[in-house]
Every structure is written in structure tokens, then in C-alpha cells.
Computed example of a mutant assay.
Amino acid sequence: MGRAGRPARRVSGMVLDLEGDLVALLRTLVDLESVSGNEKAIADAVEEALRRYDHLEVERDADLVMARTNLGRDERIVIAGHLDTVPVAGNLPSWTTGEGDDLLIWGRGSCDMKGGVAVQLAAAARLAEPNRDITWIFYDNEEIAEEFNGLARVARSHPDWLSGSFAVLGEPSNAGIEGGCQGTLRVRITLTGRAAHSARAWMGDNAIHAAAPLLTRLLAYEPRQIVVDGLTYREGLNAVKIEGGIAGNVIPDRCVVELNYRFAPDKSVEQAVAYLRDDVLAGFELEVVDAAAGARPGLDQPAAAAFVAAVGAAPSAKFGWTDVARFAAMGVPAVNFGPGNPSKAHADDEFCPAAELTSCYEALVRWLS
């Protein structure tokens, strides 16, 4: 036995039953350990399961599996989820607590985002004749550096796999719709001074002290709330790292402050940089070290309106960056929709409520039947 109430389980044969119990499907997916870079076993199982259905054309690129219908519908929807997880932390194999509406499935990846993958696999099997053609994408290496991301890879090698009028990413969203995502920008500001012995401080110029006006400006900054496509995004600008000084008896001649700006998807990266450089941080020289555009939710699209109606709850803005931005960059509006609380993503005690598995599955089926 593992921890209390948690039987030690091994996945035998790696067979996924896409038409059985959703909880059992999720537990099998969780027990297929798939830390980024080690997705082959789970990708093999997903590919094998999807190839059992004649209504799906199945292709593979490394450890990304694509399955799609080709019914000649007027519209194509893309529904995607990543197969990888962050490293295991004593939270495998899976276990459950509670029962009925209070049943919870625990274990690495249960929330981020194998709950969403379970929902999508079950829906892919069920929806043999959907009202829109569907492309299902199950991809690798989402949790690590951009250069390895499976969705980014097929955007370059097979862009037609991601083509559609609307996309849904199964990131945890408490079974509600989180539209689009924020953009993110990291910049460095370097303050300089003159080194001296701290016993003769008047002979130097303290670069750390020179950061005071910058920090004061950040403290006074009031985050803006911006409405985009009917959703309210709250921006944020914060110092996230500061470095300076070489010894306890030396006046530092250099101090570097790193800032993170989370901006609403009404701006491009270039506009976000200009806003910081010319407005908020005018007078300081900025060095851009990382940037990613956000994504508009695209809720004015007909498919999106039908999706919102199927879910039956008002959408909200996504705070944070997700791979929906990759779809937006290709001109495909996208939303986040999946079971699980996003605050539990990457937590050692992550879990997924069984009730949200069911509600997400039922919403997809309502929307696409």
C-alpha cells in the first residue's frame, strides 16, 4: 500500500478504455508517468486507443498524436491537451478520496492536465459524427523550454494540423471557460555606480541605492484593468529579481533589477515594450530578456458563442500565459477549458474533481453533437 486509502497500482499493458469510466481513464493516464521528455509510453497508449476508431484519421509527430474527423463540415474546431507533467514528487501512483459528487482523483498530472486529456479522449471516441469537424491534438513537452514544445513544433512542420476557426485548450479552469490569455514580458534595468571601500563610502556611488527611484515608481504603479472581447484582464508589473554587490565591504557599482509585466491581449509585444519604455518606466533603459504575446479570446466567433451556451456559464479572463497564444498567432481564437483548479497545477497535492471531469465531457458533447 502507499499512503492511506491509496492502493499501489501498476498499469498493465498501457491500454486506455475511452468508452468506460472517466475516473478509471484518468487514473490510468496519471499512472502512465510522463514527465517532460518521457512521453513515449503515454503517447503510444493514446495513439493505439485512437486508432481503434474508424471515424478518426490518426497521425503522429514524435510524441504528439493528432486525430481528426474529415466529414466535410463547414467548420473545423481544434481541441488540444498536453501529455507531459512536471517532475513526480512522491505523488504516483494515483489515488482517490471521497465518493459520489465529492470524489477526488489525486496524483501528478491529475490537474495539469491529464484531467483535460481524459475528457478529450473520451469525447473523441464518442463524437463519431460531430456537427463540426474536429482535430484532436495530444502533445508533448509543454512544461519545459519553448524549443521543445510539441505544439510549437507542429506549428512549423504541420501547420494544417492546427488550422481551424476556433480552438479549445484543456488546461485546468475549474470547468469554466477562461478566454484567451495575458501576454508576458521580462525586462532588466541595470543601474551603475562607482565601487569603493565601504569604510570610505563617500568615495563611491552605490548602485543599489540608485535603484530606489525605480522601486518607488513600481510601488506607485496601479495595475490597469482592460476589457477585451467582453472579458476583463488585470495587468501587473512587478520586480521579480534584484542582484547587486560583490562583498560585504565594497560599495556596489552595479545593480540589476528584473521586472515581469503581464499585459492584456489588446497589446502586441512591441506595444507592451513601448508602454513600459515611454510611459511607466520613462528615463530607464530597458533590456528585453523574454517576451510572449497574449491571445484574444475571440468570443465573438459563432463557434465560441455556441460553446459558451453549451458550458452554461459566463466566461472569464485567463490570468497567465498558456498555449492558446500559439493558436492566436496563427489567427485561430482560443479559450482554456478543463477540469481542475489552476492553482493546484504543479502542486505536490494536485487533484481533479470527478464531478468536473463529467461536466467538461458533457459540455463538449453537447457543443459538438
Rank of each mutant, 00 (worst) to 15 (best):
residue 92 L to M: 14
residue 294 G to L: 04
residue 213 P to Q: 10
residue 185 L to H: 05
residue 132 R to N: 09
residue 102 D to F: 11
residue 86 V to Q: 13
residue 324 V to H: 14
residue 70 N to V: 13
residue 120 Q to T: 13
residue 91 N to Q: 13
residue 36 S to C: 03
residue 134 I to Y: 09
residue 332 V to F: 14
residue 163 S to E: 15
residue 156 R to M: 13
residue 2 G to E: 14
residue 261 Y to M: 03
residue 152 A to E: 13
residue 184 T to Q: 08
residue 82 H to R: 07
residue 236 G to W: 08
residue 75 E to T: 08
residue 264 A to F: 08
residue 308 V to L: 01
residue 146 E to G: 09
residue 58 V to F: 04
residue 320 G to V: 07
residue 17 D to R: 11
residue 191 L to W: 00
residue 365 V to Q: 01
residue 245 G to R: 08
residue 61 D to R: 13
residue 138 F to G: 13
residue 95 W to D: 09
residue 191 L to M: 14
residue 12 S to D: 12
residue 313 A to S: 15
residue 356 E to H: 05
residue 257 V to F: 06
residue 151 L to K: 15
residue 309 A to N: 14
residue 6 R to S: 11
residue 318 K to V: 01
residue 24 A to I: 00
residue 131 N to M: 09
residue 66 M to I: 02
residue 227 V to I: 02
residue 56 L to V: 07
residue 321 W to V: 02
residue 326 R to K: 11
residue 7 P to R: 15
residue 364 L to A: 04
residue 339 P to D: 03
residue 212 A to Q: 14
residue 26 L to E: 03
residue 276 L to M: 02
residue 206 N to H: 05
residue 249 N to W: 06
residue 7 P to F: 00
residue 251 I to A: 06
residue 204 G to V: 13
residue 167 A to Q: 07
residue 71 L to K: 05
residue 168 V to G: 02
residue 184 T to R: 11
residue 174 N to F: 12
residue 115 G to E: 04
residue 16 L to S: 10
residue 166 F to E: 02
residue 153 R to V: 09
residue 13 G to E: 04
residue 37 G to Q: 02
residue 367 W to D: 10
residue 41 A to G: 09
residue 187 V to T: 10
residue 270 E to L: 10
residue 231 L to G: 11
residue 262 R to N: 03
residue 39 E to Q: 14
residue 50 L to P: 15
residue 220 A to T: 06
residue 306 A to Y: 01
residue 254 R to S: 14
residue 52 R to D: 05
residue 278 D to Y: 08
residue 177 I to L: 00
residue 277 R to S: 14
residue 110 S to F: 01
residue 254 R to A: 12
